[in-house]
């Protein structure tokens, strides 16, 4: 079985700051990490490979430094790594990104047909959850998002059964390979790389594809040109400067503070007063 996992290198968003004057993003020195959601997909792909054999190819589109992310995937046991990198991709939105990645997956399939594509549920920087569905559509793959478990896979009969989280329950779905899966976070636990894996990753020559090598003939479909959406402005959330009404009372004991708060809540917010009354009824009712 040939499994392709799309992983993205993202800035550790907890360390990004906004320049207070210019409102631009201060990215300098912000460490890059593999998008955490993608690791659940990578692990699931490796488990499938452990189960039925085959090959795992990791694919990333990004600047040359994104090679780090791919190396990391190799250390866990991925077989191949391809970095799609080209200035032409700069400014790609999800539509253009999924176009480029779909094209690269098609190229990867020339060598050995692809049975399964994994994407992360979403990224922590773009945070759209759109690239996975986009790739599936372009490659005409069945789409299974928010998968929490893979129940069965049968490479011979080209079938897979998964559990998918829906809003109010879990769907058990059966579909045909090839398909595209995005894994729900927490659905598995990433393995610890072995020493051999670490060495292989350190020595592994990551393949770099420019847009041509990725099979993209029409450059107007990627980058800014291929992106319908345009970011008009980036801004910091307007801080609400209305400070809290700080509750204090003479004695300062927890009991008096609590009583003072409750009094304020019920006298100043009639709706709340009613609600608090009802709450009690329910409690006694139960």
């Amino acid at each position: 079985m040939h499994i392709v996992v799309c992983i993205k290198q993202v800035p550790d968003s907890s360390q990004i700051r906004v320049h207070p004057v210019t409102n631009t993003i201060m990215r300098q020195g912000v460490p890059a990490v593999v998008n955490p959601y993608d690791l659940f997909s990578l692990e699931e792909a490796l488990r499938l490979k452990d189960r039925v054999g085959g090959r795992v190819t990791v694919l990333c589109m990004g600047p040359p430094q994104a090679e780090m992310a791919l190396r990391k995937a190799i250390s866990f046991g991925a077989d191949h790594a391809i970095l799609v990198t080209d200035r032409a991709f700069a400014g790609s939105d999800t539509l253009a990104t999924s176009f480029a990645l779909a094209s690269a997956v098609r190229q990867i399939g020339r060598d050995m047909a692809v049975d399964l594509v994994f994407c992360g549920k979403q990224t922590i920087d773009g945070d759209t959850a759109q690239v996975g569905p986009g790739i599936a559509k372009r490659l005409d793959l069945q789409l299974l998002t928010y998968v929490s478990q893979i129940d069965a896979v049968d490479p011979e009969r080209r079938e897979i059964v998964v559990r998918r989280r829906a809003e109010g329950g879990v769907q058990v779905l059966k579909t045909r390979l090839p398909c595209l899966i995005t894994m729900l976070e927490g659905s598995n636990e990433l393995r610890f790389a072995t020493q051999a894996g670490i060495f292989r990753a350190a020595r592994y020559p990551v393949q770099r594809w420019d847009s041509k090598a990725a099979g993209i003939e029409d450059p107007s479909r990627v980058g800014l040109k291929g992106s319908p959406t345009v970011v008009r402005k980036v801004f910091a959330p307007t801080p609400n400067t209305q400070r809290a009404d700080l509750i204090s009372c003479e004695s300062g004991t927890p009991e008096d503070l609590a009583a003072t708060l409750l009094a304020k809540l019920t006298t100043r917010n009639p709706e709340l007063a009613a609600l608090l009354g009802r709450a009690g009824m329910q409690e006694t009712g139960r």
Binding site: T241, R243, D245, L246, P254, L257, A258, L261, A279, G280
Partner: peptide, 28 residues
Amino acid sequence: IFDFATYGIVGNALQILPALTGACRQHL
């Protein structure tokens, strides 16, 4: 959080919470 809360109590939640629970029970 005090920059956008409606009401604030500066204090130890481990003490305030039980007190509030008691007060609410009484109120109800």
